[in-house]
Design a protein around this nucleic acid. Structure first.
Length: 1007
RNA sequence: GCCCUGGUGGUGGAAUUGGUAGACACGCAGGACUUAAAAUCCUGUGAUCAGCAACGGUCGUGCGGGUUCAAUUCCCGCCUGGGGCACCA
């Protein structure tokens, strides 16, 4: 019997599917374990070998936990709303639902090939009404809630309204606008519109005005990555900021809980640090400066935020964001032109470009701020590096203490006040807090750290400032001007947003004729006149929501306008882990009993690219649902494992082309692909290319003529080169398969000639992101077909640590395949037939097995799958060396292998169970599956060693090894070591300064 | 620019808590089996110096310093690859 993986894998996949081997019940007396993958966006390009890395890891861990006796939930689904499907629709006229369904079907086929243990009955798709009904429902929960800063949790807005009616908003500062203050009497007298406007400032999901990237030429809003250097990626049209009404999630209210929650979950330190930095909590002060512009003064007109109020006497200039509202007021006539020019320059630039800009830019407004402590006039500048959205959009520039301020001062020749004495060297800023202040009036001699509090007190006393906690994090923009997303269950009337009733959900995404934007840059839904106009019938007091329109009697035959934005991609992905628990429930998003059983995701696997987006949003949604009593835990993911990115290793060929007419053309003016002799294309091997690349085109030709006389290039006196991506799948290592290359791209290069080195065409290579356009993707299907799913799974794990990024290289896959074949031969040998037997295992064999059990269990538990695979190899190598074919050893080995290579494990497990002896142990027919076997138990007694081959070093350099009993005393060890001939030779009468002995590790003699 | 992360033989990587650097595998070279090939098996394989050989010596974990009996591991400074930076998912 030979190892026929194609037959075996197909057989077991069908069998497992038929018997529902991966079906998971919500009721079990086993302990639960929830393993989750970040679900994929089903792109049209299909899976490449990078996708399954995390899925294989989670599958191995799920199966491992199952063998360990857990009831394991391991679901999969699709993050199916998103921009690419919509763009495909715009370009090809295919409905996103259609292309998405096709892509999903393709993904599923590819996933099934690899043999995952997903319970597909629990699949979710975020774009399906049965799913997004509950996304809309959760949105309404957020819409009808506010964050209570006293109880630090989300509460129903009804509570707040009751309070407003009784006592006004004195107890609850308005998060959207802290200046809003009213009494109960005032509240009750407000119009409905005024009341609703105020409530909007409290809601967790709220409406406001935001800026988008607007491209007038394309008539649409663009994503950041569709904008390159201020112009659209497609077409290169100018892009400007445009203000639009937008929905937001008030995630900033959760900033502190998102921070403190990190202490309760197992994310890597790096991940926690990224989230912490993203939230960016800082303690500082707001200080109001009076502003002098021309003859006028604005008292306390400019408020800055600073984390270093202690440096107040070192302020040499102010910088305000180009969007700052004060600018139009304070700019002097002389500066007006310059300021206008500068602002229009900034308008075309993204936040990131503004911050990444190395060249300091800025513009003086002509106005001055007045230092409240010494009356000094400080010039007010505008610069792009100050962002409107952070702090107050204005900073005070302290060049001696801040690197960027220092550069700014140097750039614009602003004289620098030194307030830190020797700590400032005149060349670089020094952000220390330890210096004693100088040139600082009443703070002279005070250590900076202590001065912070003194200044803060003084600011309060003078009523010009206060301590302030600030967050870098902004409220999350929650609306998109797109089609392919969840519609908002909102109807607008007279500027008031009315939520739909629960029984009106889901609000279905309507069909559109065109996926283009609406007339004012809204989403495509804005074009649907009939759909937009919606009756406001049946408006009821929805879950206590404040619909005062309802209090004035039943609102019959009123109509409003539907919200035309849709929700962003992260809406559906913020809660999908809950839906997997109870995916078919039509009366609630997830039954509370079920979510209490499954509770948190125990292990979440996905890439670091979601470090701050998805992972923060889903944490916030979980907290809000917890606050409102819908679930019983407030962190979604107990443990997070980040998988590294698998990069593509691109291959390149060098193409030589020749100008049509050398007499009339100079090589340097020949542009790519034009005016060239298309009949003559020569590809030149990398080594030869490198030899000649620095020569002049003329010398290149001459050199090649000499070296390759058969090439007919004598007509040409010049040439030029292009380096092109070539499909990695027709390159073996670096050697190009020339014949395959000629057939590639439908024979585009069929007539090409080649300059080889050592009869080979050698490519050059580079590691890049894996992508179709770079021809560096490797399709798992082909590998699975060639080597089998088990080999593929183990090879992906064998590549390296799962959390590390690494370039893909198919080469080593043979080694893993050989390992499985070798394992197979422990059971069946083609020449001899069955070789496995019921012999009694000896000590050496048991030692091999139990060492493997220990290592594989530990490695799997700590996600070190690559070393686990190598332990399997070592174990099989050793057993083969001993010619051990005993079931007593092989069966536990198969069970351990199940998570990694389930098909071969099951096949061999069934083969050895088919004996009469074994069938009796298993029950009738021996039909139980290896999937439900028990992971073998490590027994130390088989692995105990009595002695150790100690490395003995002289001054840290290993000179010899000595075998010493493990129970030898340090004195005995020293005597043995020092009497060793090699050691004696090295010591050679020198006095022993120190003798270091670490039991079980090493010996070091210091002389 | 800011935040995070990685850098070890020809290649992917191992070394789990400061204790034998290079496990395991690929590749390569040589050999066995074979009419031949495939498959399989065996041997060697960090660099360098010395030698007929045996036993060896020196260097070596991106670069430069430091701590230590001992550093891939800890500390400081630098170089460099990758990811993220709020409308890609």
């Amino acid at each position: 019997m030979e190892y026929n993986f194609r037959i075996i894998e197909k057989k077991w996949q069908e069998h497992w599917k038929a018997i529902g081997a991966y079906k998971v019940s919500n009721e079990s007396n086993k302990p639960k374990y929830y393993v989750l993958d970040m679900f994929p966006y089903p792109s049209g390009a299909g899976l490449h070998v990078g996708h399954p890395l995390g899925y294989i890891a989670s599958d191995i861990y799920s199966r491992f936990k199952r063998l360990k006796g857990f009831n394991v939930l391991h679901p999969m689904g699709y993050d199916a709303f998103g921009l690419p499907a919509e763009q495909y629709a715009i370009e090809h006229g295919v409905h996103p639902a259609t292309s998405t369904a096709q892509n999903i079907a393709n993904f599923r086929k590819q996933l099934d090939n690899i043999g995952f243990s997903y319970d597909w009955d629990r699949e979710v798709r975020t774009c399906e009404p049965g799913y997004y009904k509950w996304t809309q429902w959760i949105f309404l929960q957020l819409f009808n809630s506010y964050f209570d800063r006293l109880t630090l949790k989300a509460e129903s807005l009804t509570l707040l309204i009751n309070e407003f009616e009784q006592i006004g908003n004195g107890k609850h500062e308005c998060p959207g606008d802290p200046t809003i203050k009213f009494s109960a009497a005032q509240w009750n007298a407000f119009s409905e519109k005024a009341q609703q406007d105020i409530l909007m400032q409290y809601r967790l999901a709220f409406c406001g005005i935001g800026e988008v990237n607007w491209c007038d030429a394309l008539g649409t809003v663009l994503a950041n990555d569709e904008v390159v250097n201020g112009v659209s990626e497609r077409g290169g049209h100018p892009v400007v900021k445009k203000k639009l009404r937008q929905w937001y999630l008030r995630i900033t209210e959760y900033a502190d809980r998102l921070l403190s929650g990190l202490e309760t979950i197992e994310f890597s330190d790096a991940m926690k640090e990224m989230q912490t930095n993203w939230i960016g909590k800082s303690y500082g002060a707001e200080i109001a400066f009076s502003v002098v512009h021309g003859p006028s003064t604005i008292e306390h007109g400019l408020t800055v935020y600073t984390t270093r109020p202690d440096t107040i006497f070192g302020v040499d200039f102010m910088v305000v964001a180009p969007e700052h509202e004060l600018i139009s007021q304070i700019t002097t006539d002389e500066q007006k032109t310059a300021v206008d020019e500068y602002i229009s320059y900034v308008k075309s630039r993204s936040d990131r470009e503004r911050q990444a800009e190395k060249k300091i830019s800025g513009c003086f407004t002509g106005a001055y701020a007045v230092n409240p402590f010494n009356g000094r006039q400080i010039p007010i500048w505008i610069s792009e590096y100050v962002l409107a959205g952070y702090g107050t959009g204005a900073i005070m520039g302290v060049p001696c203490g801040d690197e960027r301020d220092h550069k700014f001062a140097q750039q614009f020749n602003i004289s620098i006040t030194n307030i830190i004495g020797n700590f400032y060297n005149g060349v670089d800023a020094n952000p220390t807090k330890e210096a004693k202040l100088t040139n600082s009036d009443f703070l002279d001699g005070v250590v900076m750290r202590d001065a912070i509090g003194i200044v803060n007190e003084k600011l309060v006393e003078m009523r010009i400032g206060k301590k302030k906690v600030n967050y870098k994090m902004r409220d999350a923009a929650f609306s998109r001007q797109r089609y392919w997303g969840e519609p908002f269950p909102i109807i607008w009337k007279d500027g008031i947003a009315y939520p739909l009733n629960e029984n009106e959900l889901p609000l279905l995404l309507p069909e559109v004729e065109s996926y283009g934007p609406g007339p004012e840059g809204e989403g495509p839904l804005a074009n649907l006149k009939d759909w937009i106009e919606a009756p406001l019938v049946n408006l009821q007091d929805w879950q206590g929501a404040p619909l005062s329109i309802n209090r004035k009697g039943p609102a019959v035959s009123q109509t409003g306008m539907r919200e035309t934005n849709t929700m962003p991609g992260y809406a559906g992905s913020s809660w999908y882990f809950l839906r997997y628990m109870d995916p078919h429930n039509s009366s609630t998003f997830c039954d509370r009993k079920v979510s209490d059983y499954w509770n948190q995701v125990d292990l979440y696997i996905g890439g670091t690219e979601h470090a701050v987006g998805h992972l923060l949003y889903s944490r916030m949604w979980t907290k809000a649902l917890y606050d409102l009593g819908h679930i019983g835990f407030d962190e979604p993911f107990r443990k997070l494992l980040n998988q590294g990115m698998i990069q593509g290793s691109s291959r390149f060929v060098h193409r030589m082309t020749f100008p049509v007419s050398v007499d009339t053309l100079v090589a340097s003016v020949v542009s790519k692909g034009e005016n060239v002799d298309t009949k003559k294309t020569i590809f030149i091997s990398d080594g030869i290319f490198n030899d000649i690349k620095n020569l002049s085109p003329f010398d290149q030709i001459q050199t090649l003529k000499k070296a390759e006389p058969v090439l007919d290039i004598s007509n040409y006196s010049t040439t030029f080169f292009t380096t092109l991506h070539v499909d990695v799948n027709i390159v073996d290592g670096l050697e190009l398969d020339v014949e395959a290359f000629k057939k590639w791209k439908n024979g585009e290069y069929a007539d090409a000639e080649f300059i080889l080195e050592n009869d080979k065409y050698i490519c050059c290579s580079e590691v890049e992101k894996m992508s179709k356009s770079k021809f560096n993707t490797v399709n798992p299907d082909e590998l699975v077909n060639k080597f089998g799913a088990d080999t593929f799974r183990m090879y992906e794990m064998f590549l390296g640590p799962v959390d590390q990024s690494k370039p893909w290289d198919t080469k080593g896959i043979e080694g893993v395949h050989r390992f499985l074949k070798k394992l197979w031969r422990l059971f069946f040998d083609e020449m001899k037939g069955q070789v496995w037997n019921e012999g009694k295992a000896n000590d050496a064999e048991l030692k091999i097995l139990h060492r493997a059990i220990k290592k594989i269990e530990e490695d799997t538990e700590r996600f070190s799958f690559n070393t686990a695979v190598s332990t399997f190899m070592i174990c099989v190598n050793e057993l083969a060396d001993l010619k051990c074919n005993k079931r007593e050893i092989l069966e536990p080995l198969l069970i351990m292998l199940t998570p990694y290579a389930p098909h071969i494990a099951e096949e061999l497990f069934q083969q050895i169970s088919a004996t009469p002896l074994f069938a009796e142990q298993r029950g009738a027919g021996g039909e139980s599956s290896v999937l439900d076997a028990s992971f073998p138990v490590f027994e130390e007694k088989y692995t105990i060693e009595s002695s150790k081959e100690y490395p003995v070093s002289i001054n840290g350099k290993v000179r010899t090894n000595i075998n010493i009993a493990l129970d030898a005393t340090p004195e005995q060890v020293q005597e043995i070591a020092l009497s060793n001939a090699v050691i004696k030779k090295w010591v050679e009468g020198n006095p022993i300064k120190k003798f270091i002995f670490v039991k079980g590790k090493m010996i070091n003699v210091v002389i």
